[in-house]
Nucleic acid binder design. Structure first.
Length: 509
RNA sequence: GCCGCGUUGGUCAAGCGGUUAAGACGCCUCCCUUUCACGGAGGAAUGACGGGUUCGAUUCCCGUACGCGGUACCA
């Protein structure tokens, strides 16, 4: 439609942790921008000073960084259309609201909260379920539509508290084309006269999005489905402000739903069901409450992003594993689902498993280091890397390298002797005594050589090697888990292997 | 209540008027492995309902039901 540069934005309000759905909105914006060689802007919508939470903006920025969804313009890095924090743009908005008043598309309203509540009471008494300040009641309220110009001027002159409201037209239809949903039509009669400029001089979301999207030359506006009902207000504002030809194309993204029941996925659902909902850990500065994040739960950003992309979008080919580059190439907004998707934590874990397999041992080791540290273990990076390679196929999370490979770092504290004892006998006891002695002279300590020696020795004693492998494993790991036994022996080394055999033999006597 | 948006297996979903209705997660069985996994082979399981339109509807249209979202000087 326009040959202008693609410019999209993510515009969160800094009120707390960054939700899954929020990250997905960012992702779709980001993919679209990159695909079209456009720009992705982070704008902070902090017009509600009562809801401002310190640290939330920094947190959002850090989330985007972790996800690899870095903006081209933001409060932090600036850009040609700054400032990027709406609170810092406050002086900008009033003139546009005034412009709308002058054109007859908005008006001053002096109603106090008490008067508004009184109006709602009356309406409710009449059976009106959701009383609105709209075409039907505005003539009964204290606003510039019903007052003498002089009176308005006087009130304004002495600084009487007031808001500016949009004057919704009556009996009109507003239609726009949503890139996901197609044409959507609203009757203007059913939408109320939304406040555009608050008494404190701050714009509401409705005015701010339109003005900022215009000033920042936003070409495509993707946001959550919860915004669909207010779209007609925004469309009208674009028109009334005289910018109709530059209005962005809209797309309202489907919601991410809770796994059980219905409804939007909330932080509470995560707490209740035991999975994260926020991208990263979030600590509420007021209450000190800590909410779990995907990052701290051991998710790789690649997996997190991949999983999110597939929640509501697919390329039609059946492919499920995508790198960011592939997503950028293949993403298409028209293939985004209309219906909401229930979040499935099992599937999320599967994505993480897939990505762990695709991640190099060096990086896995690096990510695992803090876990090791927390266990009080110090190890050579090269050794940790090797272990990562040995156990990663059975890990869904990086920290599970410990669960599946702790015995590479420390001796088992307990042994699953029940798995061995029932079939334990003097022959086996003797075999392991001999095996332990043999290890000390084993020249080649590779897994293959160990296996060969083990089997040869078993043969001379007339015991099936299979009968001996499980006991050997228990001696080294303590239980029935872990990579192939001979790999373990080769990795922990001659002395450690011999020591562990001796230790276990004592217990089995 | 009103307005809007949705509705293919338990979940994510492909499909775009004619198909044995893909695939993935999860679940079950078997194989591999005398550990745990990975991997491989199978299996159970799906078109909300009712009307049209059509030679033929999962697919198009209209209702109904259900769900969700919105209905603030919050975003």
């Amino acid at each position: 439609m326009s040959h202008n540069k693609v410019r999209v934005r993510f515009a969160p309000s800094p009120t707390g942790g960054l939700h899954l759905g929020g990250v997905r909105t960012v992702l779709f914006n980001y993919l679209f921008a990159r695909q079209h060689d456009g720009e992705f802007i982070l704008r902070i919508e902090d017009t509600d000073q009562t809801r401002f939470v310190p640290g939330a903006e920094e947190y959002i920025v850090e989330c985007l960084r972790w996800c690899g969804l870095e903006p081209d313009e933001s409060p932090l890095q600036g850009g040609p259309y700054g400032p990027y924090r709406q609170s810092e743009r406050k002086p900008l908005y009033r003139q546009y609201a005034e412009q709308l008043v002058a054109a007859g598309n908005a008006y001053y309203a002096f109603d106090t909260p008490e008067e508004l509540e009184a109006m709602r009471e009356v309406e409710r008494a009449r059976g009106n379920h959701s009383p609105q300040y709209n075409h039907a009641v505005r003539s009964t309220m204290r606003n510039s539509l019903n007052m003498e110009a002089a009176e308005v001027k006087e009130l304004l002159g002495k600084g009487a508290p007031h808001v500016i409201r949009i004057k919704m037209p009556t009996n009109e239809e507003v239609t726009f084309t949503d890139m996901i949903r197609g044409d959507v039509t609203f009757q203007t009669n059913i939408v109320d006269d939304k406040v555009l400029l608050k008494a404190d001089g701050m714009p509401t979301y409705h005015l701010a999005v339109v003005v900022d999207d215009y000033l920042m030359k936003i070409s495509h506006a993707f946001r959550g489905e919860e915004w669909l009902p207010s779209a007609p207000v925004h469309i009208l504002l674009w028109k009334y402000l005289g910018w109709g030809n530059e209005m962005p194309q809209w797309a309202h993204l489907p919601l991410i739903l809770k796994p059980d029941g219905n409804g939007k996925l909330s932080k509470r659902d995560g707490d209740r069901l035991g999975f994260p909902v926020y991208a990263m850990n979030w600590q509420d500065p007021a209450t000190g409450d800590l909410t779990n994040g995907f990052r701290e739960n051991g998710f790789l950003p690649e997996a997190f992003i991949n999983m999110l992309a597939m929640l509501g979008w697919n390329d039609g080919s059946g492919q499920e594993i995508f790198t960011m580059d592939e997503l950028i190439r293949k993403f298409s907004i028209s293939r985004v689902h209309k219906g909401g998707a229930k979040f499935d934590y099992d599937k999320a874990k599967w994505f993480n498993h897939q990505w762990i397999q695709r991640t190099g041992n060096e990086r896995l080791a690096q990510l695992f280091l803090p876990v090791l540290e927390s266990k009080g273990v110090v190890a050579e990076p090269a050794y940790v890397e090797k272990i990562a390679g040995l156990v990663k196929e059975r890990c869904q999370f990086v920290n599970e390298i410990w669960d599946h490979g702790f015995f590479f770092f420390v001796r088992p504290e307990k042994y699953d002797l029940d798995a061995v004892k029932p079939r334990w006998n003097a022959d086996k006891q003797a075999f392991f005594g001999e095996w332990q002695a043999a290890l000390l002279n084993q020249e080649d300590f590779s897994a293959a050589a160990l296996e060969e020696g083990f089997k040869a020795l078993a043969a001379t004693r007339g015991i099936k090697p299979g009968e001996l492998q499980l006991p050997f494993r228990i001696m080294l790991c303590g239980g029935k888990f872990g990579p192939p036994v001979f790999d373990i022996a080769a990795t922990i080394g001659r002395n450690e292997t011999a020591d562990r055999i001796a230790l276990a033999l004592d217990l089995l006597k």
